[in-house]
Simulated assay, not measured.
Amino acid sequence: MNEFATMFVVATIAGAITGVGAIPVFFRARVSHRVYDAALGLAAGIMIAASVFGLILPGMDQGSLLAVMSGVFLGGFLLLGGNKAVPHVHARYLGWRREGGLDDGDGTVVDVEGDDAGGSGLDAIDDADSRIRRALLIGTAIVLHNAPEGLAMGVAFASGLDDVALLLAIVIGLQNVPDGFAFAVPVGETGISNGRVLVYTTLSGLLPQVSAAVVGFFLVSFATGIFPVAAGFAAGAMMAVVFREMIPSSHGHGYADAATAAFLVGFALLVVVDELLAV
């Protein structure tokens, strides 16, 4: 199998894991805040460690500090700009303790962020249009978060950094599960079948990551030495996601200690994986 085929298969598997996040929706499982907050903390720790050990340090080995840091700021600020342009919607089951968001009356608590946070843009109306819009907003956010990671994975494979690319694929797959869960909740509430929920959830991670990985792979053909900037870009975007989305979402429910402990476990887990891959 050549390098491109390997990259394509790995990116496809990592993206498809997003569909795993839809499984609890099939059973309308009631996930406690403690468990969910800890899961977010675990994923956040993995992403921060991956940003440093899987992207920034390898990027500095392949290029200059300036190139990597330029990518970090570019990725981070573009992610923040995208968050500003695309309002975020977070759907949660009724089985969880209320968090002060809008209650649409059908078992979901909806929090809205961005320019429409004041209530002018998204009304909690129990109809198909509001549910579909919710799903589209979350889907857009997932695309925004997934594309930089796929880009870095494609560039890593094309640059011959197979260990880095494999590490990124593991991290991407792990974090895609909670992304899929966040997407599947509002999609499932539109009344479509469980099978279609699974397909749409899987595609929400699969398409952006594979597409970005392919773009990243071929970018190397046109611009040698692009990995340091691309690695910094992905690291900056991932760190922005962690501090803008994941850490705030895992705190404020009374389980900050559990989320913090899970963060440390996630960070250590990634370091161990990185060390094992380096052996």
Rank of each mutant, 00 (worst) to 15 (best):
A49I: 04
P178R: 06
P24V: 01
F263M: 09
R131A: 06
T201V: 04
I13M: 09
I172L: 14
G71E: 00
F183R: 01
E3L: 11
L198K: 01
Q62P: 05
A22V: 03
L203R: 05
I138M: 14
L102P: 00
H253K: 15
P24C: 03
H145L: 10
L40I: 09
L174E: 02
V199P: 00
A124N: 07
P178S: 08
G225N: 13
F53S: 14
A5R: 14
K84Y: 15
H253D: 04
V242Y: 06
D104F: 10
G100A: 09
N194A: 09
V187A: 13
L277S: 02
F227T: 02
Y36I: 05
S221I: 10
L65H: 12
R131I: 05
H253P: 01
T140M: 14
L40D: 02
A259E: 03
V31R: 02
S130R: 02
A156K: 00
P186L: 06
G252E: 12
F227W: 08
V185K: 07
G82W: 12
L161C: 09
V72W: 02
R97P: 04
S32M: 07
A237S: 12
G252F: 09
P148K: 00
L168K: 01
T224P: 14
L122M: 12
G59K: 01
D106K: 10
M246H: 11
T140V: 15
G19R: 07
F77D: 13
R133T: 08
G118W: 09
G75V: 11
F73D: 05
V72T: 04
A278L: 12
G19K: 06
T108L: 12
E275V: 15
A268M: 14
F217E: 00
A16D: 03
V229F: 14
F73Q: 13
L137Y: 11
V68Q: 03
M153Q: 11
G254I: 13
A258D: 08
E149Y: 04
V187Q: 06
A278I: 07
G236A: 05
G266C: 07
I17A: 04
A14L: 03
G266T: 04
F26I: 11
A156G: 07
D106T: 11
I13P: 03
S120Y: 08
A158S: 08
A44C: 07
F4Y: 05
P208E: 04
H90F: 13
G45W: 00
T12R: 05
V185M: 10
V31P: 00
V279R: 07
G21H: 04
A5T: 15
M69Q: 12
R28M: 13
A261D: 10
G225P: 06
G180V: 03
G252W: 10
G150H: 00
F4L: 10
G82P: 01
M1Q: 14
H90P: 06
A49E: 03
L137A: 08
T260M: 10
V143N: 04
G188K: 07
Y255N: 10
V52S: 11
T202S: 05
V155M: 04
